[in-house]
């Protein structure tokens, strides 16, 4: 609920950022808008904790289901843990993505955001960074959880890098597609269908790279996957930047 309150702050609060936007150079103003939108989502979430709680519970349950359904012994855990990690990130992330723009649209605050005198792509990156932060929180909790439950140390710098790169690609294309699926008749089912094929290359690279890192393989085994992920992120960010204007023009 608090998101609605955020879009219409009191004049005293609004006056300061607006003046700052006018004074600074356009580039800074752009990133200022991006940060404002991302910060709005984060603050709204800190107040309500609606989304993050359901995502965390969902994560916990998914890990439980995986452990029980696969009945993993210690060897099997070593080979499947990255798959469990990424499948859970994707499904928990889907929960967040489908709420992100849908709640704005249902409350009517999306129109307000679109009418705001900022670049449409700033709105996109703001939303995307908000989503990315949620996914990263989930991923971090999940990595701790799997480290404890599977007895495999997942909290390694390289693995964190892979998770960040994969999450960037996932949330970028996810934010673009969820801004399309909010207009569909059955948006809850359409978003996974639209997102899965497009995000599969990222998931494949991330899983393969993570497995190689986890099994302490030499760098030529995981480096190509890191490069591919980086490239995919760049392609998807560029594509979303170019295409988001066409999605939200009304």
């Amino acid at each position: 609920m608090s998101a609605q309150g955020e879009t219409t702050p009191t004049t005293a609060e609004a006056a300061v950022p607006v003046r700052r936007v006018k004074v600074r150079r356009p580039v800074t103003a752009y990133w200022h808008a991006v940060a404002a939108i991302a910060w709005k989502d984060v603050r709204a979430e800190i107040r309500s904790r609606e989304l993050i709680n359901s995502m965390l519970l969902f994560t916990l349950m998914t890990v439980m289901i995986f452990s029980l359904a696969l009945e993993l012994d210690s060897n099997a855990r070593q080979t499947t843990v990255t798959g469990v990690l990424w499948v859970t990130i994707v499904f928990a992330g889907l929960l967040g993505l489908s709420r992100s723009l849908a709640s704005e649209k249902d409350k009517g605050s999306l129109d307000g955001l679109l009418l705001a005198p900022i670049a449409r792509s700033a709105l996109f990156f703001g939303k995307m960074i908000g989503n990315l932060l949620f996914v990263l929180v989930i991923a971090l909790v999940l990595m701790v959880l799997l480290t404890v439950l599977f007895n495999i140390t997942l909290l390694r710098p390289l693995l964190l890098l892979l998770v960040v790169l994969g999450s960037i690609g996932f949330t970028t294309i996810g934010t673009l597609l969820s801004s399309m699926s909010v207009h569909a008749r059955s948006r809850e089912t359409l978003l996974p269908i639209l997102l899965m094929p497009v995000v599969l290359p990222i998931v494949i690279s991330a899983v393969r790279g993570s497995t190689a890192v986890l099994n302490e393989m030499p760098s030529q085994d995981w480096l190509p996957w890191v490069q591919l992920l980086f490239m995919a992120d760049v392609i998807y960010i560029a594509a979303s930047y170019a295409l988001f204007d066409y999605v939200v023009e009304e």
């Binding site: 294309i173 673009l176 597609l177 399309m180 094929p197 392609i235 594509a239 999605v247």
Partner: peptide, 8 residues
């Protein structure tokens, strides 16, 4: 838009 993203 989706045709372009899918081809990517």
């Amino acid at each position: 838009v989706y045709a372009i993203v899918a081809f990517a």
